[in-house]
Simulated assay, not measured.
Amino acid sequence: MLSIKLLGRMAVERDGEELTAPASRRAWSLLAYLALHPGPQPRNELAARFWPDVLDSSARASLRSAIWALRRTLEPFAPQLLVAGREEVGLSAAEGELRVDALAFVALLDEGRDSEAVELCDGELLSGFEEEWIDVVRETHRERLLGALERLAAGCELSGDLAGAIVSSRRQAAVDPFGEEVHRRLIARLAASGDRGAALLAYRTLSERLRRELAVAPS
């Protein structure tokens, strides 16, 4: 099975063996986009999305170069994965032959399996990449992860497992370091557990971060 890991550092593995990334970072980004968007994607839209500041002819030429770089990388491991026609480009794999962790995360959430979903998350989506389209999907992923963590925390709280609730709350705070509501819930759970010192420390940490990074005080 080929595995494309997008949660945290991007990596592509075949039966546990990691592929060497192509020299072109844009080619790697293109693979990530295709992995996150199953099915054929129009070439003209891909060219415009990845090379928006150049002429259409130049953008399409750059897309061809990126596809060529991906073919060289994928050919020895999955020769049929990348399908590039005259008008469309996409990934094609038989059922069970390709796993994309970010898509698996969403599928697990849809099935109500929050605990398994959050275990897949080893850092932010496509860590180290800075592109406009990635910012959008990264924020969507972050909101889904925060929601799953809060459901887990609330479930632990209802069952009397404050320690478990605090673990999920701390992880929420790490995902959303400036989120005041996230930190309020963490502080409340720490206080409810009797750990007043940890609750005060969590408040001071948030207060200092907001003041240092945003020049504001907690509301």
Rank of each mutant, 00 (worst) to 15 (best):
R71G: 09
R72G: 05
R72V: 12
T73K: 12
L74D: 06
P76Q: 08
F77Q: 12
F77L: 01
F77M: 01
A78M: 11
Q80C: 11
L81C: 03
V83R: 15
G85A: 06
R86F: 00
E87L: 06
E87K: 07
E88N: 01
V89R: 08
V89I: 05
V89N: 06
G90I: 00
G90L: 08
G90M: 01
L91Q: 09
L91R: 12
L91S: 10
L91E: 00
S92A: 05
A93T: 03
A94C: 05
A94D: 04
A94H: 06
E95K: 10
E95L: 13
G96F: 08
G96D: 09
E97T: 03
E97W: 11
L98Q: 03
V100M: 07
A102I: 04
L103A: 05
F105I: 11
F105M: 03
V106Q: 15
L109I: 12
L109K: 06
L109G: 01
D110M: 00
G112W: 13
D114A: 04
E116R: 12
A117Q: 11
C121I: 15
C121F: 14
D122W: 14
E124N: 13
L125S: 10
L125I: 15
L125N: 11
L125H: 14
L126K: 10
L126F: 15
S127Q: 15
S127P: 08
F129V: 05
F129N: 10
E131Y: 14
E131Q: 13
E132S: 12
E132W: 12
W133K: 08
I134S: 02
I134E: 13
I134M: 12
I134D: 08
V136P: 11
V136F: 13
V136A: 13
V137P: 05
R138Y: 15
E139K: 14
T140K: 15
H141Y: 15
R142L: 15
R142M: 13
R144E: 14
R144V: 10
R144K: 15
L145H: 13
L145S: 05
G147D: 13
G147M: 12
A148E: 03
E150P: 06
L152V: 11
A153Q: 06
A154E: 11
C156R: 07
E157S: 03
L158K: 10
S159Q: 03
G160I: 02
L162M: 03
G164C: 12
V167H: 08
R170A: 07
R170Y: 06
Q172L: 10
Q172M: 10
A173F: 02
A174Q: 07
V175W: 15
V175K: 06
D176Y: 09
D176K: 03
P177H: 00
E180H: 02
E180A: 04
E181Q: 08
E181S: 00
V182H: 02
R184L: 10
R185V: 06
R185M: 02
R185F: 09
I187Q: 01
I187L: 13
A188S: 01
A188M: 03
A188W: 04
R189W: 07
R189F: 07
L190K: 08
A192H: 04
A192V: 01
S193M: 00
S193K: 10
G194P: 03
D195E: 09
G197M: 13
G197F: 14
G197W: 12
A198P: 05
A202T: 09
Y203V: 03
T205R: 07
L206G: 02
S207Y: 12
R209H: 12
R209E: 03
L210G: 08
R211V: 09
R212W: 15
E213V: 09
E213L: 08
A215S: 06
